[in-house]
Computed example of a mutant assay.
Amino acid sequence: MISTELSMIQMLDPQRHELALLQAAWLEKGGTIEVLAGPSFKPPPERHEPPPRKKTTKARRIAPKPTYLDRMAQRDIEREERSARKEQAKAELLESVRALAETLTYAQAECKTGLARRTLQRLAVEGGFKFRPAINNRRPQRTSEADDLKNAERIRAFKEIGISRYQAMSQLGVTFKTFNRLLEKFGIDYPKATKGPELGASNKKAQD
């Protein structure tokens, strides 16, 4: 690296020698050489930073108190929202009951949903659908002649002690239709409206 710079300096020697001869000839003719001052470094002016600003807290805005009209409007909005929620719940209940009606009877739907029969009937009318019909698998009970005779004797005993038809049917464990059939079959004239004695006392007399 040093040898390269030295060779460059040596290459400039003829130019410096020529420049020195020209300067000497210029001075002999009375000329002057003015040496200009080189560029001077001036530091940049000092920068003055502005003082930091203090953060000012904004006053909290207090919401104005609602007026009477505002409260009334808010009540109307809340009332409409409650009504909308009620209608939505009713529509959901109607659709769920509609789906149950495709496969269930009224009795089965009552057990499934816990809803009353009247509520299910009202929903069916409003929704325009029907529940599956109930299948009555009960076969009519066949009674023998001996059973009819025995029940007829008990009916006559109930008539003598003066108990009502309803109490007599309860004691026999028969339906209204069967009770009337026995009355007609054996010609028993049983009063239709008779206020009988206490049921316990009637049982005791019937057993005696």
Results as ranks from 00 to 15, higher is better:
R98V: 01
R98W: 00
R98N: 04
A99D: 10
A99M: 10
L100Y: 00
L100T: 05
L100V: 00
L100H: 05
L100G: 04
L100S: 02
A101G: 02
A101M: 04
A101Q: 08
E102Y: 01
E102C: 01
E102S: 12
T103G: 00
T103W: 01
T103I: 01
T103N: 07
T103Y: 04
L104A: 07
L104R: 05
L104C: 11
T105R: 03
T105G: 03
T105D: 00
T105Y: 01
Y106K: 10
Y106I: 15
Y106H: 10
A107R: 09
Q108N: 04
A109Y: 01
A109T: 13
A109P: 14
A109F: 08
E110Y: 10
E110H: 12
C111W: 07
C111M: 12
C111E: 14
C111S: 14
C111T: 15
K112Y: 09
K112C: 14
K112S: 11
T113L: 07
T113A: 10
G114D: 08
G114K: 13
G114L: 06
L115S: 04
L115Y: 15
L115D: 06
A116V: 09
A116I: 02
A116D: 11
R117H: 13
R117K: 08
R117L: 11
R118I: 06
R118T: 10
R118D: 13
R118L: 14
T119L: 10
T119A: 13
T119F: 08
T119H: 13
Q121D: 10
Q121P: 01
R122P: 02
R122D: 13
L123K: 11
A124N: 01
A124S: 15
A124E: 01
A124T: 05
V125G: 00
E126K: 15
G128Q: 09
G128W: 07
G128K: 07
K130E: 11
